[in-house]
């Protein structure tokens, strides 16, 4: 399709606006994290005195490093479990007819809609009794409850797109249902699997409410919660620089995840499977 110069200019303007809107806060945080303590409050975007002190500081403190490790473990474990269970459940929902199928799909959606805040209290009480309070599983379990519906919903949409013939062809070719699932269905649903994986990872990576309510020490506290506990040098200094540096550091894994998986999320992977 050909665009006139006017159309191009309009699109360029609109795109710039949207990108700027999204990226300015990120740039601001980045700039803050690189500023020397004395120039923190000067309000300029480009730091006048560059410094990596903030970064050195947060990595020196156990508080942040522990939280970072917790975050990675909690997010990865949640993602792995959600994808394995979610893809099987989504497959069943997409391919099988069983009583209560709609109810199950609806219920899983309803759970995802449930306001977290109303669950924090009860979970807190229960976790304290069963000894899951301030543990990593204590975070992973509620994260799964909220991310599974998301994964199931995304994945079943992808599974529905895969022609059933392919799976039957695999079975006739000598595959067990499990082999057909692993060697034919999953590779074809890869874009869906990665999309869901990213969504689940981001959800558990950035979750704050449960993280701060269900942890009390470095044992299980994740980065979003740990950030709130950052203190300045003395009680009179704001920990602005450290928080900014930590925020930049925790953004990096997300950016890496998206960059890696983006290459796998290519449309039209199923083109040519059946008569096109």
């Amino acid at each position: 399709m050909q665009h006139t110069g006017k159309e191009k200019a309009w699109w360029a303007g609109a795109n710039t606006l949207v990108i700027a809107f999204a990226i300015i806060p990120v740039l601001w945080i980045l700039s803050l994290s690189l500023k020397d303590r004395s120039t923190l409050g000067d309000g300029s975007v480009i730091p006048k005195k560059w410094s990596l002190d903030n970064y050195q500081e947060i990595f020196k403190a156990d508080e942040f490093v522990n939280a970072f490790v917790n975050s990675i473990i909690v997010a990865l474990v949640t993602t792995a479990i959600a994808i394995v269970i979610g893809s099987m459940a989504a497959y069943a929902l997409a391919r099988l007819e069983f009583p209560g199928k709609r109810l199950m799909l609806g219920a899983s959606l309803a759970i995802a809609m449930f306001p977290l805040i109303s669950l924090v209290g009860p979970i807190f009480d229960v976790w304290r009794r069963v000894g899951l309070f301030d543990t990593r599983p204590g975070l992973i379990i509620p994260y799964l409850a909220f991310s599974l519906p998301l994964a199931i919903y995304t994945l079943s949409a992808f599974f529905r797109e895969i022609p059933w013939d392919l799976e039957q062809a695999a079975q006739v070719d000598g595959a067990t249902p499990m082999q057909a699932f692993r060697k034919v269905i999953i590779p074809l649903a890869a874009p869906g699997v990665f999309t869901s994986a990213i969504l689940v990872f981001i959800f558990s990576w950035q979750e704050f409410l449960l993280a701060i309510s269900l942890t009390s020490t470095d044992n299980a506290r994740t980065v979003p919660a740990a950030l709130a506990f950052f203190t300045g040098e003395s009680q009179f200094t704001q920990p602005t620089g450290s928080i900014a540096a930590a925020a930049v550091v925790v953004t990096v894994p997300i950016v890496i995840m998206v960059l890696i998986f983006q290459r796998r999320i290519v449309a039209g992977l199923t083109a040519g499977a059946v008569k096109g």
């Binding site: 022609p163 392919l166 006739v172 590779p187 992977l269 499977a273 059946v274």
Partner: peptide, 14 residues
Amino acid sequence: DIAMVFQSYALYPH
């Protein structure tokens, strides 16, 4: 031990 040719061919696209 049978082989089938489908109307849609059902080739594995990947």
